[in-house]
Design a protein around this nucleic acid. Structure first.
Lengths: 189, 189
DNA sequence: CCCATCGGCTAATGACTATTAGCCGATGAC
DNA sequence: GTCATCGGCTAATAGTCATTAGCCGATGGG
């Protein structure tokens, strides 16, 4: 791996473990075997490392969501696939997803506005999936907004505690969470 | 309200909005109308403000959980009440719950160990509730651990987006989330 | 062989921050 | 009336940190 990639990886791990504010350039340098100031031969600013993580994470999530639901008409199948994509991303890219939700506050403008817009768009996509099931009469929920938040929040949780070497395989996790999502909206599979 | 209480309240609001690390003693002082150094006439250290929030939050959650489930034998009713208590706390004490989950990393020892122990205990209580339903044959879940994490994570999410002046009343929220929890474990009410 | 570029390094720089020191006006007990 | 205490204040103190400056060895194209 080239040094720049190594740096981004180290920053991601440190931001996850200690948080953006508590991670120093010295920490990141030490993680790749150089001194803090030397990082500036590869990166313009600490903030850029965070921006790259946040933006690509949200874009990847949206891309994964669209790939999962396009061409699928059945609301049950749409929600199943959307949840699969959501949970799989949060399990497979645990660190990115963790930093993506935890460090929004540390994002400076104009990046904050951009990431927030992507987030809002992602939530709207999910809400639309739930709405389609309600419209079709197959989902039973009082509030579409509440139900979609609930499903989204399940994914966030995964990014907090999931470990690839834990007792759950990624597939088992994704399967169970998809079932949780369907049950949540009142589909009794 | 006495000044000390006012300070704790201001710190809570600032820790939620900006994060512990990004909140300065000057910020907290400004929020109560005095200068940063003057805070030390009321508080020994910035860290103490965080510790107080985290410890009382976890203790209150545990207390609420125990009050909700003691004397209730039926697993369905136990889970309903546990979820009600969980979600109601996260809605009513949104800031405390938010800081309680977000700022664990900023907690210094020995408080970190103590809070982590309380957290583990709380999770174990919830897992026991789910386990009782599985043992009784009324809950259908592959993994008790996964299902209880899912229900717990729903509460965390509430602390992120719930607003007392939003479109959902606290009671409506609690009611819907309790139903979500029961559906999650396979109870078709 | 030469020298420009790359990517390290150490030593500033310039902020910012928690906390402490030391001062002082108000207040209330006696 | 005096004086101790309370709770402000400003001015240190003693860091820490992101970033910049300036230096230098290695490397590789010409």
């Amino acid at each position: 791996m080239d040094r720049s990639g190594h740096i981004r990886e180290a920053a991601l791990e440190l931001f996850t473990r200690k948080g953006f504010e508590s991670t120093t350039m010295g920490d990141i340098g030490a993680a790749v075997g150089i001194r803090g100031p030397s990082l500036y031969k590869h990166v313009a600013a600490k903030q850029d490392l965070l921006v790259a993580i946040m933006v690509t994470t949200m874009e990847d999530l949206l891309t994964a969501h669209r790939a999962a639901v396009t061409g699928v008409a059945d609301p049950v199948e749409r929600l199943r696939r959307a949840t699969e994509a959501h949970v799989r991303y949060h399990a497979r890219h645990r660190l990115e997803a963790f930093v993506g939700t935890r460090e929004i506050r540390s994002l400076a403008e104009p990046h904050l506005t951009r990431v927030l817009a992507l987030r809002t768009e992602y939530e709207a996509c999910f809400r639309a999936v739930v709405q389609s099931g309600v419209d079709a009469g197959v989902f039973q929920v009082d509030s579409v907004r509440l139900a979609s938040y609930a499903v989204l929040d399940l994914g966030m949780g995964v990014a907090v505690w999931y470990r690839a070497d834990g007792e759950q395989s990624e597939d088992a996790l994704v399967w169970q969470y998809s079932r949780f999502a369907l049950r949540l909206v009142g589909v009794t599979a």
